[in-house]
Structure formats: C-alpha cells, structure tokens
C-alpha cells in the first residue's frame, strides 16, 4: 500500500486519489454512540470493504454516506469538496447509489421498470412533455432504455425483463437491485451485504458481477459483507469496525494479521 496519488494494482486496474473521505465522524443516537471518531477514505476505482461484527456501525456508516443519518461531528469530503448536510435524494443526484441489506425493490413494478427508475436522476423532461409523450419524453425514454438494456445484458437478466419483481427468487431480486443501482451510472456504489442469504453459487455470481462492474465501468465500490472469504478475495482495502470504533484499515493481508481484528472476531481472554 502506497500513499501515492495513483497506483496500479496487480491485476492492472488504476486506483486514483480518494473520491470520498470520512473525517472524524461521530454519530450518536441519544446516549448511544453508534460511530465514534472514525476516519477513512475510499479511493477512486477501488473496491473498499467495511467489515465488523454485528452492531459495529457498518450500516450506520453507509447511512451517513447516504444522508439518512447526519453525524454530530466530523466532515465528509466527496470529490474534493466538503459536503454540506444533504437529503438522500440530493446525494443520489451527486452520483452515489446503493443497494440494501434486505431487498428494497419496487414490488409492484417489473424488472425493467425497476431498473428504469434507477435512471431517474438522468431524466429531465417536464410534466407537460411527459403528458404528451410523443416528442422529447419518448425520445428520452428510448435513450435511457438503451442504457438500461445494457445493464440488463450485463447482469444476464434478459428473460425476466417484464416479470414483476415480487415474483422473482431471492438471488435474482438481489441482482435486479444491483441493476437498479448500476443504471444510475454512479461514481460511488454502496453495497450493503450484497451476498447475505445466498448459496455458494449465487455468491460466486455476485462476486463476479461486482468485480466486473469495477473492472469494466471503473465504478468505485464500497461494500459491507460478512463472508470473510469473499471480502478477502475481492476487496482492495478493508476497514474494520467494532463497537463503533475503527480497529483496522489496510489491505486484506494487513487486516487479517492485525491483532485487534483477530481479537474482535475470535474473542480475547480477559484475565
């Protein structure tokens, strides 16, 4: 690990300077401190994993990045600028997309419509053109449909394009949700336990998609995952949280040999 502005990984991907920096973030709910004084950065083009035992503050951290929670202390820097407190939809407009731990698809809509909804921030025609349809609205719809179809091809879900997502099996729903986030062409993609509840085969598929997204589109990815094997295999750098504190940060090899991390995961004898 070098602190140089850009470097090239062993598999030939270029990792740029930090796209997002969390500086001394503290988040409290009443008397409970969910996150205390955590700093870390996410570099452009890398896969950054956030791991930790249950209740470590991983999801809270994603919610801070997303704007669902506003930290009491600390600064968030995104693409070289300090971010003001924003609403989640404004943060989405800045180019941050995410998926959820428990699937948050639009159950009443088809796969296609779900992924088309992901294009929302890129579509601009106003209500009058929308009502008339012919002209700008239809043109915009078709342009965005082409991008969505590329995502559908990429995720190999052509066959379920018109299926209502409520009728899909769990693994496919996870894939559609990834597709919805990808359709936004985000600069930073947050994945909250993308492999939770999957079998080995589905996990392998999902890992492959995550690596391909990163490799082909150069999308920066931050993910929370419990499967250590997966995390160690696919991520460039890992940050480890425990009880709202950061206890480790570095490459998978560095982290796995960190005594604090081993203690947090395996327990430590108090004598």
């Amino acid at each position: 690990m070098s602190d140089a502005e850009t470097y090239v990984t062993a598999d030939g991907r270029t990792i740029g300077p930090p796209i997002m920096e969390m500086r001394d973030i503290t988040l409290k709910f009443g008397g409970v401190t969910a996150i205390s004084n955590i700093s870390f950065d996410i570099r452009e083009g890398e896969i950054r994993a956030i791991i930790g035992p249950n209740g470590a503050g991983k999801s809270s951290m994603l919610n801070v990045i997303n704007g669902f929670y506003h930290p009491q202390e600390g600064e968030i820097w995104f693409r070289g600028k300090k971010r003001k407190p924003m609403k989640p939809y404004q943060i989405a407009q800045q180019g941050i997309a995410r998926t959820f731990q428990n699937i948050a698809l639009f159950k009443g809509m088809s796969t296609l419509d779900n992924i088309m909804t992901g294009r929302f921030t890129h579509m601009k025609t106003n209500i009058f053109w929308q009502a008339l349809w012919k002209g700008p609205a239809e043109r915009e719809e078709v342009e965005n449909r082409e991008i969505v179809e590329k995502v559908i091809d990429f995720l190999e879900i052509q066959a379920i394009r018109k299926t209502p997502v409520g009728a899909l099996p769990y693994g496919l729903q996870k894939r559609v949700e990834l597709g919805r986030a990808l359709a936004a062409q985000p600069k930073l993609l947050l994945l909250d336990e993308p492999m939770a509840g999957m079998n080995v085969e589905e996990k392998e598929d999902m890992s492959r998609f995550i690596l391909d997204v990163n490799d082909e589109f150069g999308t920066t990815i931050a993910l929370i995952e419990h499967d250590m094997g997966v995390v160690m295999d696919i991520s460039d750098r890992v940050v480890v949280l425990d009880y709202g504190k950061k206890i480790g940060d570095g490459t998978p090899d560095e982290v796995i040999n960190n005594q604090d991390v081993i203690d947090a995961y395996l327990g430590v004898s108090h004598d």
């Binding site: 669902f68 939809y89 989405a92 997309a97 948050a104 698809l105 639009f106 159950k107 909804t117 992901g118």
Partner: peptide, 10 residues
Amino acid sequence: DMDIAAEIIG
C-alpha cells in the same frame, strides 16, 4: 412501493 429506496435513487 418503497419510499426509502425511491429517495436513494434521487
């Protein structure tokens, strides 16, 4: 269908 997810999409 899911207001939180809608907000995250923009």
